[in-house]
Amino acid sequence: MINIVAAAVQMASSPHVSANLLEAERLIGEAAAEGARLIVLPENFAFMGLAETDKLEHAESEGSGPIQDFLSRAAESHKVWMVGGTLPLKAQGSKVRASCLVYDSAGAQIARYDKMHLFDVNVPGTNEHYLESNTIDPGECSLVIETPFGKLGIAVCYDLRFPELFREMAGDGMEILAIPSAFTAQTGAAHWEILIRARAVENLCYTVAANQGGYHVNGRQTYGHSMIVDPWGKVLSCLPNGSGIVTAECAGAHLEKVRAAFPALNHRKLRCHSALTPAKPL
């Protein structure tokens, strides 16, 4: 891995694609101006509807559509690698996939990751209910890709709660983890930073977590606190709330140093399934 300035874009997206793209364009420009060469957009950056089903209206076919055009154009014009949050790509049937597309600095789509773990949750302490599986078809595979600056792994939001996924990605050599998210304010306050830092620490990687943050015009509230965390679990940069960016330099030397000094990844044990033996009767 080589040094690179990464940026996480934090937004509070609305149900209007054009408005969101304008906002994203502004923030990408700011990030690029600060020297970012890897920019991670939050989940649902282009659209957060009033209802779960609203996203179906904006579903695009892979390779074409205004959102993809925007991502490609933005990556190309700013000469950055772009992790395009998530956008709805048409799936079989009436559902979509929550897809995270990765574009290189020439604007070409390099990879696609489909969110694997769907947020079917009643958020405790709130009236918020989510049932993503009603509209989203889950992905099946993790993703770690080679980039000019290192191996980049992609996961989305609720995936964050499933460490085995990241363990697998670590096994694939992941050095930078990008996590486009839309953590709710309630769950985010409780778990966001813990999980982000935990994923960074346990997998000894830089983590660029771009979250939705703030009030949304649709009435929801997301937690924000987009952050960039180094392999030691140190929060390099964080934006508590509102639209904006966080940037930080991801240093390859630092990664190597931490991994060398703390070779936890090398200490993993193979799984050992011992057969259950019935307890002896008293």
Partner: peptide, 24 residues
């Protein structure tokens, strides 16, 4: 309807997109 306003009030209505003003 719904409204969202985020930004420095002095910058309202955020012509240079210094903030967010959305209403639907």
């Amino acid at each position: 309807g719904k409204l969202l306003l985020r930004g420095a009030l002095a910058d309202f209505p955020f012509v240079q997109r210094q903030g967010v003003f959305q209403a639907m």
